[in-house]
Write a protein that binds this DNA or RNA. Sequence first.
DNA 1: CTGAAAGCGCTAACAC
DNA 2: GTGTTAGCGCTTTCAG
Lengths: 343, 343
Amino acid sequence: MGAVAATQDPARRATAAEVARLAGVSPAVVSYVVNDGPRKVAPATAERVREAVRRLGYRPNRAARALRRGTTGIVGLVIPRVANPFMAELSEAVQAAAERRGLAVLAAGSGNDLGVERRLLQTLPRHGVDGLVVATVMGHHDTAPPVRPDLPTVYLNAPFAVPGCAAVGPDATQGARLVVDHLLGVHGHRSVALVTGESGARTAGARELGWQQAVTEHGARPGPVVRVAWDRPGGSAAVEALLGAGARPTAVFATSDAQALGLLHGLRAAGVRVPEEVAVGGFDGVEDGAYAAPPLTTAHQPVLAMAEAALDALEQPGGPGEGHALFGLDLVVRQSCGCTATT
Amino acid sequence: MGAVAATQDPARRATAAEVARLAGVSPAVVSYVVNDGPRKVAPATAERVREAVRRLGYRPNRAARALRRGTTGIVGLVIPRVANPFMAELSEAVQAAAERRGLAVLAAGSGNDLGVERRLLQTLPRHGVDGLVVATVMGHHDTAPPVRPDLPTVYLNAPFAVPGCAAVGPDATQGARLVVDHLLGVHGHRSVALVTGESGARTAGARELGWQQAVTEHGARPGPVVRVAWDRPGGSAAVEALLGAGARPTAVFATSDAQALGLLHGLRAAGVRVPEEVAVGGFDGVEDGAYAAPPLTTAHQPVLAMAEAALDALEQPGGPGEGHALFGLDLVVRQSCGCTATT
DNA sequence: CTGAAAGCGCTAACAC
DNA sequence: GTGTTAGCGCTTTCAG
């Protein structure tokens, strides 16, 4: 009766040894069947084992397996803020890519704080993760980020190469050019202002460069440049500087959708009509942009592909390399640029 | 030199046994010091151990500890979609509450799909979580959700009691009354329409009830009721029904901010001015509401407090009970109701 | 093709 | 107060 009781006790999970006993084999064979490998098992025996697994509802104990194998099947994800729409989409993309690989995601928000991000980089590994995906806090990391040399790490949303570990990011220059070119070429503005992140951080570099290139190419004037935080409040705060600075710009490129959304909000509050008085373009391509007033024209980052690339790099045997994979963006034309509604 | 090499080898992590040897004590003492307990250790010895820990950079191996103790310090979080702003805020709140307790969060998105949510409830535990926080997919769960009896589970964002496990949620009736009462009492509307979730799901019950109560109390007429998805597209889709149905309503209460945001977008696209022609109220209190056009008047859920309560319930010795903890909401007055700008 | 057995690193009885 | 030691459940050599 002991065996039966054990079988039916819902609180206690069956062990490989119990499965082995029920199937009349050794624990080793159970392991071979469950993992199919590393040794071959006779079909008949394997079937018997599988039947026992089913009967006992056996699931290998993750902790024991992790202890033995030294891997957990969990990747850590460090992300600034999920409340940032772009980060939320990036986070979902990483989740999806991880699930496709049978990995689980241990997520930790840094609250947009570089200090917290640094701390997370140290503490997350303690929870036993096999690798780390770090969605960088925008506007920081002018100095090399602190990477744990013993833990495969890949930087996501990184517009710059990270020495010592793999990086995946948008081809920010191309993306920025896409929208500034649209503002200039299609809508015929003579100058485009720039709303971007604080400081001359390298992060801003590529997006700013794209803006500059497009402006130069069209023989247009660069509008005023205003540096604010990489979020909606930042975008709102930019309005004052934009409107106060002598000649009011007729077009503005914001280097993130969050900033663009804040900007639209601020302009509306100031009674400035978009796109009639000022046209606005963003960068990221978040779903929220479609619900903005007016709907935001922006460059869309291929988040799914980037997430896949990040996990691919992580799983690379021998650890992720040092490369910097760049992904092209698509132009999403809505109405903040001056185009008319399509729907 | 062997010892020195081992000390400096960055690839290999030190074990408790090594720390013990360096400190000249037994592994047991190392454990006692690291966990302070369950036995007392002489101050001098403890200091020697701590020094050795520091020198070797020792971190207890999570997997071994989990195997031995039977707990991982990881809680699973099942959440519909982080791209939903409210869910993102809820997710951050759970993160924060977990961190305060030294727990890590294994997050998994259900993509708003009840089938996926069910599957997650089965698979997440395999990754060795100590407990499960489930942010329910809105508009489902009319039947008892599938709970693993062996795993402490608490439902979050649950407006109904869940048989067999603890539930934490907003006092939806109170919250809904708050905003409908404002629409009716302050702005003097004679009727308020309702935009809510599909089907007569119990989920909708409480919010709908609050709307009804407020309408009745004011001797007003209930406006048309339209049932759509619990997200922005749903809110947009509601516009047609709202405008088509005979007398156009002068005020609308949407039972989630996502729907309200979609609604504002749809009304704008249809050329209806808010709040002049139609006033709008929401429910959730997400940050996005502040950036909507016009900024959304809504009831704010105390997400932090709810997340704390959920984790408290999870940690309750003997497992979370069966209670249903309700949290009151605050009215956030912005401009979609007809109030004038305060900022 | 299968069995026996040695640990992975840690914790907590149980001795002293 | 501290040392010894027996496992937690699994994987994987090594024998057969």
